[in-house]
Design a protein around this nucleic acid. Structure first.
Lengths: 324, 324
DNA sequence: TCGTAAAGTGCTCAGATGAGCAAGGAAAGT
DNA sequence: ACTTTCCTTGCTCATCTGAGCACTTTACGA
């Protein structure tokens, strides 16, 4: 592995390449090749080994999207995910909206491909989820359920509602929106709204969900719209409880445990428990600052598919390696 | 093989790529992979097969020269060569001198790499051989023997002699030149010159040769300097005898049989027999019009290593397939 | 010249693998 | 509905392959 060999002569390279061509491209057995070249099968095996070690033969992947197959697999197995999609780092420096767009496009393709007529699809409020819906053009006819209230503010107003209805329009299925804010001033208001006809109906759909697309937020400035919308006092109180990540306004500590804080009582959103019951949860989380949050949420075992970028994936893997 | 499969979904692609990554890059066994993914080993094997068939995984070769490994191997085995070096087709249209330069560079590297102190190296007269010597900068100390007289005319005068002495200078070994024309007016003159001290000495070296670098000419206008130097009458007479190729002024028919014509008696060159005795003959032949000649010479069994370009190689392979 | 280290080579045997087959299941035609 | 066909899946058994070892050759310094 670490043993650097000299780069191999021209003649040997050609022989090695010919052998590699027969083995990898034409799929011949080493025994056949050995006979054809008048070598022992052991020599053929060693030539193939050194050919790979020296980089004479390289295996390239032509994925239908710019993904890093190595990271996909490592992340998948490190956290026991069903699947991980890791975007390759872009050639040039990429702005956050550009990255978000690529993440969203990936999620769109995944959802369009895996969704069936029998699915009930939930969407959490998030810019990336919204970007995803903008990029889906076909979807089987199935209900689309909003998983949490609308986080107003920022540069987009009631886009969450729009997100659900947009996707329902593409799908042709029914839309279950939540026409109410995500974070409310107090518990009473929250419970009142929770029992409103339309909202109650949507909440009732939560137990039917078969798929959910959610975004992972980190419990720090600019890395979670929920965090950003709270008062400094409440943010810090929650931080002190050990919150590291947020999904649909539900909090997780560094070990992926559901964290129940005061916040839980004044947000309109699917509960930890209900979300955990969803068979397929697709989580979007990207950029390095979110690595710790991604690690936390994946540890919860709630996520089946993660979509992220190579930088965040590497950081998360490092965290996964630290504490298995 | 011919069964075109649909391009595989995103999800499947990622799984296939992950499996391929583990198998090809990390070198895990299919059984291990099957366990890790919860699949049968058969399924893993099939996934790998389709991944290759659909082009999802591609094997790339980083040869130290722009060679086509597939063609190298096909040509090598089609004609039972020791080795074949096939230059990839250049990206842009390439002029003949450019191609010649690349062929020469390849021959130079091959010779520099394989020649040892014990070799006796023969060079035939040819532009490509000359270009080769211009690009060699190191060579073990060994004798350099000129294989045939000088074909004057064209754009280069006595370059053959220069070729031999240039290479001898690089090598530090002795030079055995032939200071006489390749084609002579009659048999008597030829035999007289043949017995001249310096020339006889060079001819005496022919039986000691261990390596020879020769160029393949096609028996047609502009594809052989010997052809071009003869009178129309003699050219045609030789054509009628079935000559297809020429190496050091020695002729071959389409089946690679040595052809003995009147020409044989008035050229100063190594004989068919002596050339056949050389353990390692490196033949340079390039451009499509020479494909038939290359095929003919390779059929003679005289050549151990061929250096050519992708276009000529493909044409030659087609000819080889026609008559095994 | 020799001795020693280092690299290269082929062997054994247990374990991995491929070819071909047969069973099951889905899709399409009647 | 029923049959037919096609596709997928996992099995068996004969073959292929890798890990480790022992032997040979080469390289190099004493």
């Amino acid at each position: 592995m670490s043993a650097r060999r000299r780069p191999l002569g021209l003649s040997d390279s050609v022989q090695a390449a010919s052998i590699a061509h027969r083995f990898y491209v034409r799929g011949e057995s080493k025994l056949e090749i050995a006979e054809a070249f008048g070598l022992s099968r052991f020599k053929v095996a060693r030539i193939l080994d050194t050919a790979r070690e020296t980089g004479l033969v390289r295996v390239e992947f032509d994925l239908p999207a710019p993904l890093d197959p190595g990271l996909c697999d490592e992340l998948r197995s490190a956290y026991g995910l069903e699947q991980a999609l890791v975007l390759e780092r872009a050639k040039h420096r990429e702005t956050r909206p550009e990255l978000r767009r690529r993440i969203g496009a990936l999620a769109a393709r995944l959802l369009a491909e895996t969704a069936t007529r029998d699915d009930v699809i939930g969407l959490s409020w998030a810019r990336s989820v919204n970007v995803m819906t903008e990029q889906i053009d076909t979807l089987p006819r199935c209900p689309i359920v909003q998983l949490c209230g609308v986080q107003a503010g920022m540069d987009m107003r009631d886009r969450s509602v729009e997100t659900v209805s947009r996707l329902a329009r593409v799908s042709g299925g029914e839309a279950y929106p939540i026409f109410a804010p995500l974070v409310l001033p107090d518990r009473r208001t929250t419970e009142t709204l929770r029992r409103q006809p339309g909202i109650a109906e949507t909440f009732g759909q939560f137990r039917n969900l078969t798929k959910a697309v959610v975004s992972i937020g980190a419990w720090q400035e600019n890395e979670s719209t929920v965090y950003d919308s709270l008062s400094p006092a409440e943010r810090d109180a929650i931080s002190k409880r050990g919150a590291k990540a947020e999904v649909a306004a539900r909090l997780f500590d560094a070990d992926g445990n559901a964290l129940s804080t005061g916040l839980a009582h004044h947000v309109l959103a699917i509960s930890h428990e209900e979300l955990r019951q969803v068979p397929e949860v697709i989580a979007l989380g990207y950029t390095r600052p979110k690595a710790e949050a991604i690690d936390a949420v994946l540890r919860s075992g709630m996520v089946s598919t993660l979509i992220t970028d190579a930088d965040a994936a590497r950081d998360a893997l490092a965290l996964a390696a630290k504490r298995p």
